[in-house]
Design a protein around this nucleic acid. Structure first.
Lengths: 344, 344
DNA sequence: CCGGGCGGCCAAAGCGCTTTGACTGATCCG
DNA sequence: CGGATCAGTCAAAGCGCTTTGGCCGCCCGG
């Protein structure tokens, strides 16, 4: 149309210097006018770069709970991709198909890199990913291998240790943990932090106070009620999810316990966009680690790795904020056992 | 490697008949052995089909609330794509970029079709989508145009009309509605259903009982408390989201109102995988319309449209289930006004 | 015994781009 | 004034596939 060669048009549109400004302007105007955009597939074929990133999300029923977290993580990652001109490809995968999926992603060359979600204990994916030539970044860590790969993770251990110590300092001695499923790497680290803090105070973690399940509201409700029925119930509790904390609050309210007075709760808070923890003063004292920010960081890291594949593995360990809200307070004075015996 | 032409290998791998069984077996074996998969980009270039679907998700802050719903919808759609060999491309987009995005998707030819999320009142996207040549399916409906496009939606109007009638039949007369933001098409339909049921009973919808906001837990809590403070408070309430219903429950509990006895609640329930409504007997009486199933249906519809672009527009209107749970009961007897005046 | 039909395979064109290498005319410098 | 330099452009190759059209040899029927 413009009487120019393909070469010139290509150079003009891709910002190469060997095109005169006048020509470039003409080309750009024409492209805009006719809504021309280089065909992604052809471009990818020619350049060898797909300009797309794959997110592989395990869809085993046991991990459905991860969904709300994925949504925010992906929103964060999406921001980075959009700014860099990358597309995001999403693959939901059944556990048993995982091996095949990673192989295919590598072979089909439809993406330039992979973000790996929800690493589990003894996760087989590490080897699978190594086998593909594609760069990858893990959100979380593989517990069974070193740091020889790229990851972004929060310091779960430190966070839960800190929160537990906070409760200990308030005088609590019976502190419960409502953890997520412990085949997830992050859940294991959280428990370690919790146990560590207790041990440093000379306390032994009590089996009846340590729970692990999908982080639903009902789980928080149910587990709390059961523990309140123990002979020696907890006076405080840590939970791995704000949703679960809602269940805890419901259970307490049902038993007439005031949060922050009669019973203390610290929650982990992924800062999900649609599930905020109070406004100015948070309802819940919480460890906050914005999952959307994790998404941004992981995406940015992956793009860096793609740009420089020879770089040494990158690791980002993020510390959680600790925000004191209304759900924690000093341990209530011990109730005389004679009195306690009377309560149902 | 096998001494065969590209042609033969291609035909063998793609199941064409003009290849002998023996040759095909050899080719397939070699492909497996060397982890060969046709390069997506090259294949796409040659065939003109991208084998990918785009999901465009608006990311305006006002609609963050949609996130949890998207996650499940996408999980459902992903199942269909995986089975059909399609990839899923996700684009988060700021409202103001929407026009550009649809143009680009059309021009770049990186996808074969689009799923459109969260249609709003007077949504400009209808025209934008028409302008691209790509087939699309809307999850929900554009309120301002006819049915001349493909959509999958639940019958929001009918569902809320039915739920409202159910409460009316139980003797409730002051019934509140905690709706979602009313620039969303579905929210408008829900309110219409609610109003319609009231009117059929000769009741006039009361402004102070009709709320619209992002469907958070706090919204449910806060709105309920405010309404309970009214001179003539509601005895029942409809809410557009299970998360909001949790807030309603908290408010009731705080005021000593028992759900299903002193106060009735019906929720809409998207049947989100990580946010279940009770187990055997639902905690909340609810309209259920599984969002994951919507995803499956929309994806399947889009693949049908892609296969037969000339087909007339398809519409799927899904009726919600109505499950009676523990949160509804007969309207409480009116309290003598002398007594009511005493309560704060 | 011969011609037509057919199963099985191949060469080559083409998909829409990027990139290499070369060419041309203008500019600059000694 | 002539050769070197350089900015601006182009033709053509190549990316890894699919698909068209054609070829070859075998088998079958007349």
């Amino acid at each position: 149309m413009l009487g120019l060669s393909q070469t010139t048009v290509s150079r003009a549109l891709n910002g190469y210097p060997e095109v005169s400004d006048a020509t470039r302007a003409r080309v750009e105007a024409a492209a805009r006018k006719h809504n021309y955009k280089a065909n992604t597939r052809a471009k990818g074929l020619a350049t060898g770069r797909a300009m797309a990133i794959a997110h592989v999300i395990p869809r085993a029923s046991a991990h459905e709970m991860m969904n709300p977290v994925f949504a925010d993580f992906i929103a964060g990652a999406g921001e980075i991709y959009a700014a860099a001109g990358y597309d995001m490809m999403l693959t939901m995968v059944q556990d048993r198909d995982e091996g095949r999926i990673y192989h295919e992603l590598g072979a089909k060359r439809a993406v330039d890199g992979i973000i790996v979600h929800a690493p589990r204990k003894d996760d087989p994916r590490y080897d699978l990913l190594r086998a593909t030539a594609l760069p990858f970044v893990v959100h979380g860590r593989f517990s069974h291998v070193g740091d020889g790969y790229n990851w972004v993770d929060m310091n779960s251990r430190r966070a839960f240790e800190r929160a537990t110590s906070f409760l200990l300092d308030l005088g609590h001695r019976r502190i419960a943990l409502l953890n997520g499923l412990e085949d997830m790497d992050f859940a294991i680290r959280r428990r370690e932090g919790y146990c560590e803090a207790l041990r440093r105070q000379g306390l032994v973690p009590a089996a009846e106070l340590m729970w692990a399940d999908e982080m639903t509201e009902f789980y928080g409700y149910d587990a709390t009620l059961r523990m309140l029925d123990l002979r020696d119930p907890p006076t405080a509790l840590l939970t791995s999810s704000l949703i679960t904390a809602l269940g805890v609050r419901r259970a307490c309210s049902e038993r007439g316990l005031r949060l922050g007075k009669d019973f203390s709760v610290i929650s982990h808070d992924d800062d999900l966009s649609y599930f905020r923890n109070g406004a100015v003063v948070p309802d819940f004292t919480a460890l906050r680690s914005p999952i959307r920010d994790h998404g941004r960081r992981a995406a940015a890291m992956l793009l860096r790795v793609i740009a420089d594949p020879a770089a040494t593995p990158q690791n980002e360990l993020l510390e959680a904020e600790f925000n004191v809200g209304l759900s924690t307070g000093p341990a209530p004075l011990p109730v005389p056992s004679t009195f306690r015996a009377i309560t149902p």
